[in-house]
Design a protein around this nucleic acid. Structure first.
Length: 256
DNA sequence: ATGGTAGTCTAACTA
């Protein structure tokens, strides 16, 4: 079972890329972030013609998440239970006996801002919810745009991306480690220890052309799935296509 | 990075 995540930065603009990528890679599940569209505009017919069913929740201009799967998704959950949030950043569902939690983690803008405080509160709410979720669903995959680079191997310049910088700050990394402490594992690091593998490159200042990236799109697998995770990777290819998203897909193979 | 580009929408925000 191949499961992937991709922040598409507008599904309206990126639908041709998503279609091309689904055709060539044939994932069983792909979760999307930043669809940036209201539900009545979601292209579920176009995706169905490629063999994918969609569950989704979106809003105009910002955020928006979706789960596409070859077999139908069940037990759909939108948002973090008990956490009142107008921003559409979370959708979960069960596919083929695997619980899939798609997260578009708050960016946080800059350390010390209101948006940063919201990010930390949001991550705390996610932590509480996932603690319950992993008890109910031992076969759990938590994936998406985490907007946190786990360690210095995951940033092109650790001097810039330090413990006072957004996406790498001490409090963000502590919040991330607390998620791992629930019994989750960064699938990429089960298979690759190297520095310099990135999933996002800033549009500004030619990040991709300069090789200035961060690994902030992650696929976490639960203890029960760890030994079944046969491969994990980052597909850089779509980032080279014309008019790309600033993120590229990340994926895992599970022997289930 | 008081910078830069992209998406939405056509001013100003979010990333």
């Amino acid at each position: 079972m191949k499961i992937a995540s991709w922040n598409v930065n507008s599904l309206n603009v990126r639908l041709p890329h998503v279609e091309e990528w689904l055709k060539s890679r044939q994932p069983d599940v792909v979760v999307l972030q930043e669809t940036k569209m209201e539900d009545h505009k979601f292209p579920d017919d176009a995706l169905a013609s490629l063999g994918y069913r969609s569950v989704f929740v979106g809003q105009k201009t910002y955020n928006g998440v979706a789960i596409l799967s070859k077999v139908s998704a069940k037990e759909e959950q939108i948002g973090i239970p008990g956490f009142d949030d107008e921003q559409k950043r979370v959708i979960a569902a069960t596919v083929n006996g695997i619980r899939i939690v798609n997260l578009y983690v708050v960016n946080g803008q800059d350390v010390g801002t209101d948006k940063y405080d919201y990010k930390l509160r949001w991550l705390d709410a996610v932590h509480g919810w996932l603690g319950e979720e992993i008890k109910k669903h031992p076969n759990l995959v938590v994936l998406g745009d985490f907007n946190i680079a786990p360690d210095e191997r995951d940033v092109y310049d650790p001097k810039v991306w330090n413990d006072n910088h957004i996406l790498t700050s001490a409090a963000e990394r502590t919040a991330y480690k607390r998620l791992l402490d629930l019994g989750l594992h960064d699938s990429f690091r089960l298979h690759n220890d190297e520095a310099g593998h990135y999933s996002w490159w800033d549009f500004r200042s030619g990040g991709f052309q300069r090789g200035n990236g961060l690994r902030i799109d992650l696929v976490l697998v639960s203890d029960a799935l760890k030994s079944k995770c046969s491969a994990a990777g980052i597909d850089r290819d779509p980032r080279t296509w014309e008019r790309p998203s600033d993120h590229t897909p990340v994926w895992v193979d599970l022997d289930v």
